[in-house]
Every structure is written in structure tokens, then in C-alpha cells.
Design a protein around this nucleic acid. Structure first.
Length: 475
RNA sequence: GGUCCCUUCGUCUAUCGGUUAGGACGCCAGAUUUUCAAUCUGGAAAGACGGGUUCGAUUCCCGUAGGGACUGCCA
């Protein structure tokens, strides 16, 4: 293992599902570690016990595994590391980089209100920062970091460049709450350090945190990792993605019938680019990925482009795995699983079905004609649509059956036959195709493939059977 | 309010001082045509604004406007 081994991590809070933005963050971390033969860790930030549930944690595992983003080693639960976090806080207290603050919450709030009125940064300047440790009151306290007040804090971000904050805008952040529990700020830094994380790739909403966290790294004497803050994903209206935009969780996209491969492609291209490449495989993304390709501005989620990417991956997908994906989709939506014969038929038709599908369920809609015998078409109704009468339509159908029955079952023959019959009947071939379509897949079949494809997929025997069934016995 | 970040076609983006500003989605037109699609061809469509720097700015700097994030003893 090289000394410069890269370690990344994805550290979601379990809030109910794997957010689409979180999924992209995970993907970038995964891509970056794979690209560099590094390590990709998963850490569950479950220190907010009220909001963290086993279901929420399971949703994250499910989402990641469906997306194919496997983490190395075991997932780490932040809540189980509180002793370690406290230990660091104690050290900081001992070496003077932190202090006990006995200010009440009301005092802090009052100071902030005053700062706001005076148009100053909302920081709280604790009177206990320089108090005599011997003269401390006997009441609850928090442990605060003693931030340097003279120099600005600077962080170098791999996508943003140098970012700095004036010293007076950063207050002494709380490390340990008055009940002794560690705060998020402390926990993140300690965990990232202990896990050996070299690159913190996360959402833009953490950019401000990186300055504060840098202060903790400095106080601990640790080297800060490289930060890379990803611009957020917005809804189609440019506002932060929220419930009113519809699907937020990766599970929703799974339920809609997008494949993991397509989601990876679309998500990777949202906020990251490799020249003009739009459609690519995951292997390609891995070999191309770099932090330089990450954009700076937020991007909007566009489901129509997602559809296009999805269609491409279905079209170029492997028939057998497409069938597996379809089975997964059925299961994810609590639908009845495919029977063995249904599987065999869809598998047989897959080369055709996948040509025009945007999402997995389209495969099923296209292939419906293969799975069940269509209802007998009402030729009277069809005659109405074709602006002719039922009687001549039936005659045409019979001719079609007779001629098809005696010719070899090829597309060329079918074309020639239809052309010939059309000329004799003084009709446009299009009408005969409409008639054939109705006989093979039902009069309402809008989503079935072309007549030629159906003829070929169904074969001579089944096709002729359906055609015959469509014509009334006695007229 | 304060701090920080962002700004190229409607959308995702390329460009790393000199281009007819390129590609993709979507859109429009045409071809094809047995529905819906898919496919092929063509088309419309962008550097927020104002100042600098420079022989030359989309590109560098400043300002303005707009958008976003953060601003907790949440994560």
C-alpha cells in the first residue's frame, strides 16, 4: 500500500432515507477512492438519538447497496465513540486549548441578540474564557474551544480554492455540552482523524463548518484533511431540493424504475464533468474521476435528462441483468414476481423491448403482448377507426392469414405480402399494418413494438393463432 | 443583520486571455413511418450588469445585482 493512500468517507445522518444529494456525495467519495485505489468508509452520524432510528439506518444501507457503493470495512456508528470524543475534549482542557464556560443559555442568547442589533457577527464572547479556573461556580458548564482571536482561519478547498474567515466571525465553539455529551463539530473531527480520512468530500452546506473544524484540528495538533465541498443539488426551480419537488430519496428513483447504473451516470454528471462525455459506464467514471472536474455552482435536478440517460443504459444493457433489474423493480414495488415462463418470454424479447424503454416498467409494457393473449379485437371498432367497414376488414384479415400461412416467416416476405395485398385492394399498406397490430396485440395496444418485431418474436405458429382468433367464425 | 460561496443557451456543462463560444437534455422543422417511441438530418437558443487590467477578455481584478449556504449546548 502506498504511503499516500487516499481515505474518503460518507457520513450521513439517518433521517429516514438516503437523500438524492447524499447519494451523490457518497458516489463522489466512492469514485474518488476507487480511482486512487483508496479506502471508502461509511460512518453513521447518529448522535441525535431522537431522530436516529434503526429504520433510518437501514434505509441508508439499502440505498447505498442498491446504488452499488460498497464501503470498505464495517460502518462506524458515531454514537459509540462518545468516550473517545470526551477524551479529546479533556486533553484540550488540560493543555489549555479549551475552557469551561459557565454562561447560561439565556446569557448566550442575550449576547447574540445584542450582536444582531448592533449588526455584528452573532458570536458569543464568553466571560469565562480568561477567568481564573480556581474561582469557578458550582453549576453546569460546557467545554468551549479557545479559538485564536488574532489571525483569520483559512482552509484550502479542492473545488473552491482558498477560503478564509475573519477571526472575529468565529466564536468559541462548544465541544462538550453541559450534560457532557460531545457535539457534532468535535465528533466529526475526532472521527475523521481517527479513521485516517485524507479527503473530506461533502455538501456545500458544510463549507462554513470546515473553518470551525480546522480550528479543532489545529488545537489537537492534527493535520487537516483536504476538503472538497460539492455544490448542492437544487430543484427544477433553483431552490433547495425539498419535499415539494417530489422525490428526495434514492429509494423513490428505484421505485420509479431507474437502474443503479443510470443513477450513477446521471448523478456523476450533475456537478462533475469530464469534457463533453455525457453517457458513460461506471468503470469509465472511475477511471476519469478527479476533484478538478467538480463544478462550483449548484445544479438543478432534471428528470428528463435522467430519462435520457436511463434509456441509454437500458438500451445498452445486458439482457440477463436487465431482467434481474426488472425483477428487483417488481419486488421494490411489492408487485407479483415474474413466473418462469414470463421470464423466458421477456428474456427472448429483450433485444427488441430494450430499444425503446426509458425506465424498467417500460420493458413490461412493451412486452405485455408476449405475456398474455390479447383480447379479441373488435373489428367493427377498428373499421370505424380506419374509415372502412367490418366486412371488408374481415376479408382482408382472411387474405392476410392465408398468404402469411403459406410463405416463409421472414420480414421480407411479410413486407412483400402486405404490399401486394394492399395494391390489389387499393389500400395503403399502413392500414394493413394497423389491422395486423390489432390482431397480434389487441386494438388498444399502444406500447407494443412494431408489427415486424411482434411477428418475429411471436413466431409463425403463435402469430397465425392470434390472427385466426381475431376473425369471427361466421360472417 | 453578519460571514462565506456561486453566476456561459430554458436545463446539465466544455472552455484553463485570442474559438464562427463546443457538446448533451429539452424544444422546433424535416426524413422515416404500423400507434407511442426510438433513430437520422437540420434549426433556434448563452457569457447577469458596470467598471478596470491587457494589443485582446467568457476567462484576471473590483463593484453592483441576483441566487445559495451557514450563522445552536442539530447534525
Amino acid at each position: 500500500m502506498s504511503k499516500s493512500a487516499i481515505v474518503t468517507r460518507f457520513a450521513p445522518s439517518p433521517t429516514g432515507f438516503l437523500h438524492i444529494g447524499g447519494a451523490r456525495t457518497a458516489l463522489f467519495n466512492w469514485l474518488f477512492s476507487r480511482r486512487n485505489q483508496g479506502t471508502f468508509h461509511l460512518r453513521i452520524e447518529d448522535t441525535d438519538r431522537l431522530r436516529s432510528t434503526v429504520e433510518a439506518v437501514a434505509a441508508i444501507f439499502d440505498g447505498l447497496s442498491w446504488l452499488g457503493l460498497k464501503h470498505d470495512g464495517n460502518a462506524l456508528f458515531q454514537s459509540r465513540r462518545q468516550d473517545r470524543h470526551r477524551e479529546i475534549a479533556e486533553q484540550l482542557l488540560t493543555n489549555g486549548n479549551a475552557y469551561r464556560c459557565f454562561a447560561t443559555e439565556a446569557e448566550v442568547a442575550g449576547a447574540r441578540d445584542a450582536a444582531k442589533k448592533a449588526n455584528r457577527p452573532l458570536l458569543f464572547d464568553s466571560p469565562w474564557r480568561d477567568a481564573d479556573p480556581a474561582r469557578t461556580p458550582d453549576r453546569p458548564f460546557v467545554v468551549r474551544l479557545r479559538s485564536p482571536r488574532t489571525r483569520p482561519v483559512e482552509v484550502t478547498d479542492a473545488v473552491r480554492g482558498a477560503v478564509r474567515w475573519p477571526a472575529e466571525t468565529l466564536d468559541d465553539l462548544v465541544l462538550l455540552r453541559s450534560d457532557g455529551s460531545p457535539t457534532y463539530m468535535l465528533a466529526v473531527v475526532v472521527d475523521d482523524h481517527d479513521m485516517g480520512v485524507t479527503h473530506v468530500i461533502r455538501g456545500d452546506d458544510h463549507l462554513g463548518n470546515s473553518g470551525r473544524q480546522a480550528l479543532i484540528y489545529q488545537a489537537c495538533g492534527w493535520t487537516t484533511p483536504t476538503f472538497a465541498h460539492l455544490p448542492l443539488i437544487h430543484g427544477p426551480d433553483g431552490k433547495k431540493l425539498s419535499k415539494r419537488h417530489g422525490a428526495l430519496g434514492i429509494d423513490s428513483y428505484r421505485a420509479m424504475g431507474y437502474t443503479p447504473e443510470a443513477m450513477r451516470n446521471y448523478l456523476a454528471r450533475l456537478g462533475w464533468s469530464h469534457g463533453d462525455d455525457e453517457l458513460f459506464t461506471t468503470d469509465q467514471a472511475v477511471s476519469w474521476f478527479d476533484l478538478k472536474g467538480i463544478g462550483k455552482s449548484p445544479s438543478r435536478f432534471d428528470t428528463r435528462k435522467l430519462d435520457h440517460v436511463s434509456a441509454h443504459h437500458i438500451r445498452s444493457g445486458d439482457d440477463a441483468s436487465l431482467l434481474d433489474s426488472l425483477a428487483d423493480w417488481l419486488a421494490a414495488n411489492d408487485k407479483e414476481p415474474l413466473s418462469e415462463t414470463a421470464k423466458a418470454r421477456l428474456r427472448h424479447g429483450m433485444p427488441v423491448l430494450k430499444q425503446q424503454a426509458k425506465r424498467l416498467p417500460d420493458l413490461l409494457a412493451r412486452g405485455e403482448f408476449l405475456l398474455s393473449t390479447p383480447p379479441t379485437p373488435d373489428l367493427t371498432e377498428l373499421a370505424g377507426q380506419l374509415n372502412t367497414d367490418a366486412k371488408s376488414l374481415i376479408a382482408l384479415a382472411r387474405t392476410l392469414i392465408d398468404r402469411f400461412a403459406e410463405a416463409a416467416w421472414t420480414r421480407e416476405n411479410h413486407d412483400a405480402l402486405v404490399g401486394d395485398i394492399a395494391v390489389r385492394a387499393d389500400l395503403k399498406p399502413a392500414r394493413l399494418f394497423r389491422l395486423l397490430r390489432s390482431m397480434l396485440a389487441g386494438i388498444e395496444s399502444k406500447s407494443a413494438p412494431s408489427v415486424h418485431d411482434m411477428l418475429s418474436l411471436l413466431g409463425r405458429r403463435e402469430s397465425l393463432k392470434r390472427m385466426a382468433a381475431a376473425v369471427p367464425e361466421s360472417v
